[in-house]
Each structure stands twice: as structure tokens, then as C-alpha cells.
Computed example of a mutant assay.
Amino acid sequence: MISVRRIIVGIGLAFTAYLALRGLWWTAPVLQPLVIVASLSLYLATTWLCIFWEPRTALAPKQPDAAATPLIGRSRTSLPRWAGVMALASAFIVPSAIAVAVGPENRTEPFATWYLGGIGALMTIVMVRRRPWVAWIGTAALAVASIGWMGLFPALSLGLVGSIVWVAATQLMLMSIDRAARDTAQLAQLQRAASAWQASQSGRQRERRIQVQRALAVAGPVLTQAVASGGSLSEDERTQARLAEGRLRDEMRGPRLLDDAVHAELERARRRGTNVTVLDEGGLDGLDEPTLAIIRGELAETLRSARSDRLYIRTSPDEKVAVTVVGRSAAGQGLSDEDAVDLWREIGHPGAA
């Protein structure tokens, strides 16, 4: 399939070849034809090298829009320094060599002024290949040489202005492309962030739905019994309601900490009158099920031996500690904020040093 890049490269080859052929279409005798041929050969070799050079190791995978920047290549790799030196050598050598080879009487003839467009095209290609200083130095050398050999006004009228405009317009175009590329990258980053946020929200919505379903499964029978009895519950039913409330809070606040064993120990603690608070603050994010099973097993073992009046179970943001269990009991009558800590257990991450 013919890409836009190949079309533009073909146009560049045809245009530079046309300019070089103009130099061979002598309408008057020239002093040194071999010098002209050598200059044309140097120009064509340098120009086509700058068009085709592309390091294999720097090529990026093909993208759908890889042809959108012709002559730049898919990797936007700068022209190597040695190729830039060749381009500068052509800009310095070719104009003077042609001017000397054709003779003073032919320096404004079409076959002698082709280098104004030719070197301008070469410097435009160099600019596209990300060597702006080389392009502008070569353009300056072209201007100095052409004005020196032909004069200011003949050089300007025969093509020097066009070459300068080509190079300047190419630089402005590249600046616009780079700005557009940065804007596109920022937009892509924002789109990825928005997609991640939407995925996070969808995950949270699914988690909330699951939690609501669990809450209905736990509290539904108790609520049905309370409505059916008009709120007149027996002592056993009140105990079941209190246990259902505690289990519902556990499901809402710390689902990652819960399994059948932990549920059983939490219910046993509440039946003996312990006030239990379970809170998952995100310390277990990213852990797989086998790791969570180990942590839950240690938590169940800790709860099995706990005899505190109040239990606080929290996940920890620490890299080594997964869950902290704190138990407090009253020193005298009743419970207060000054209760003594009689249980402190830190459950570490499995494998943490």
C-alpha cells in the first residue's frame, strides 16, 4: 500500500533530481564541466542520504498515523552529526564550485542558479530531520555565497528568498507539530486517568451493590421478624438483632477481613458482651486471596483468645503490619476512655521481614 510518507519522499526525490538536472542543461559553454558534475553528485548523494537515512534500532512500531510526518521517520530521530557535516559541506562547496565552473558570464543562467533552490531544499530536509542549527548555518552559507557571486538583488530574485522561506516555514511547521504532539499526549493521559476513574467508580458501585445484598441477607430476616411482631421482641430475638447489626457493620466496614472463622469469633465475642469495631482503611488493597486467608487465620486465632471488653480491629498502612487488634477493659466499674489496654496484637504481612 502506498503511504503518504512514500508519496512525499518520492516528490522530494523528484524535485531534487529536477534541480540537479537543471544544472546539466547547459545552454552555453562552461569552463569546468567536471566540477559541475562532481558538485551535482555531492549534492544528490547528500540530499538523498538525508531523505533515506533511518537507524534500524530507533524505529518505533508502525502506528496508523506513522505517515503523518513524512521525511521525519517513525522515530523522529535527528539526523546524525556526520550527515549534518555533509549537508554543511554541500552548502559551502556547491554554490562556489558551480559559480567558478560556469564562468562569470553564466552565473545568473538557469543552469547556474539551480543551487539556490537545491541547497534550500537540502536545508529544508535537514530542518525536518531535527537539525535546525545546521539548516540555518547552511542557509546562511548559501546566502553569503550567492550574494557574493551574483550580487544581492539577483540572488534574491532568482530563488534565495524562496529557500529562506522554505526553511523558516518548515521550522514553524515542526514547532506546531511538536505542540500538537504534546497536547495529544496530555489528552491521552487525561483520557487514561478518566478511564481509570470510571473503572474505579464502577468497581466501587459493584462493591456497594454486593455489600447491600449482604446486608439484606443478614438483616432481612431480623427486620422481617421485628415488623411481624410489631417491635415486640424476646430477649433471644434482641440478641439476634444485635448480632445482625454487628455483622452488618462488619460487612460494610471491613469485608476483606472477614471469612467464616472470623465471623464466628466476632459473633462469639459479641455474645459474651464485647463491643467490637472492625474497620478496613485500605491497608489490604492489592493482596491476593491466599495472603488474605493467612491474615484472616491469624485474626481469628487472636479473637479466639481475646477477653477484652472492647475490641478494635483495624487494617494498617504500614508496610510490615497488615492488621492491628487492640483490646481494652475497664479497671473498675463501667467503660470509659481511660480503660486499660489489655490486648495489643500486630498481624504482619506474610513474608514481610
Rank of each mutant, 00 (worst) to 15 (best):
S229Y: 01
E207S: 11
A226P: 03
I210H: 05
A194W: 10
A193C: 02
A185F: 04
R214T: 11
L216N: 08
R206T: 07
W197Q: 12
Q211V: 07
S176K: 08
V212G: 10
Q201N: 14
A181T: 13
D236W: 00
Q211E: 07
V227W: 06
R204H: 11
V218M: 03
D236Q: 12
S200M: 15
S229H: 06
Q186I: 12
P221G: 01
E235I: 14
S200H: 14
A180T: 13
V218W: 02
A199D: 09
S232E: 01
A228E: 10
G220V: 11
L233H: 03
V222D: 05
S195F: 10
Q205E: 13
Q201W: 01
D183Y: 01
Q201C: 11
S202I: 10
S234R: 08
A228H: 02
V212Y: 00
A217S: 13
I210E: 06
A193L: 15
G230F: 07
V227A: 05
S202W: 05
A193E: 15
D183W: 06
D178A: 15
D183K: 11
Q189R: 12
T184F: 13
D178P: 09
R179S: 13
A226W: 05
D183G: 03
R192P: 02
G220P: 02
A185Q: 13
G203F: 06
R209C: 09
G231P: 07
V212I: 15
I210M: 13
T184C: 03
L187T: 13
A194I: 09
E207T: 09
R208K: 06
T224H: 01
S200Q: 15
W197P: 10
A226H: 05
R204P: 01
E237C: 10
S195N: 02
Q213T: 15
G220F: 04
Q211H: 03
A228C: 03
E235A: 06
R209G: 08
L190T: 12
Q213M: 15
L187C: 05
A215E: 00
A180I: 04
Q211D: 04
R182S: 12
R206K: 12
Q205G: 00
G203E: 09
A196D: 00
R209Q: 13
L223H: 00
R208D: 05
A180N: 14
A180P: 09
I177A: 06
L187K: 13
A219C: 14
